[in-house]
C-alpha cells in the first residue's frame, strides 16, 4: 500500500510538473499552422546550394592539382 501511495504521488507530481511546463510559451501555433516547414525548406535550400558550391570548388581544385603535377 505504501508503495502504491508513493507511486501515485510520483505520477501526480509528474503530471502537475508537465502542466506547469505547458504554460511556457513556445511557437506552438506557428508549428500548428505548418509555417515551420517553410522556414526549414528555405534553410535546407540554402544549405544544399552551399554544398553544391563546395563540391564544385573541390572539383576545381582537384583539376588544378592534376594540371600542376603534370607540369611539374
Amino acid at each position: 500500500m505504501k508503495f502504491l501511495n508513493t507511486l501515485l504521488i510520483l505520477l501526480v507530481s509528474r503530471f502537475t510538473g508537465m502542466a506547469q511546463q505547458a504554460d511556457i510559451e513556445m511557437a506552438d501555433q506557428f508549428r500548428a499552422d505548418g509555417k515551420i516547414y517553410v522556414v526549414i525548406a528555405v534553410v535546407l535550400l540554402i544549405l544544399v546550394g552551399i554544398f553544391i558550391y563546395l563540391f564544385n570548388l573541390d572539383k576545381k581544385v582537384t583539376r588544378l592539382e592534376k594540371e600542376v603535377s603534370k607540369n611539374a
Binding site: I24, V39, I40
Partner: peptide, 23 residues
C-alpha cells in the same frame, strides 16, 4: 551534408524542453 540536413530538420522539428526565457 546528410548530417547537416538532419541537423536542420531535427533542430527545428525536434522536441525541446519548455523553459522560461529561453523558449
Amino acid at each position: 551534408m546528410l548530417l547537416l540536413i538532419y541537423t536542420i530538420w531535427a533542430g527545428f522539428m525536434g522536441k525541446v524542453p519548455r523553459q522560461a526565457i529561453l523558449n
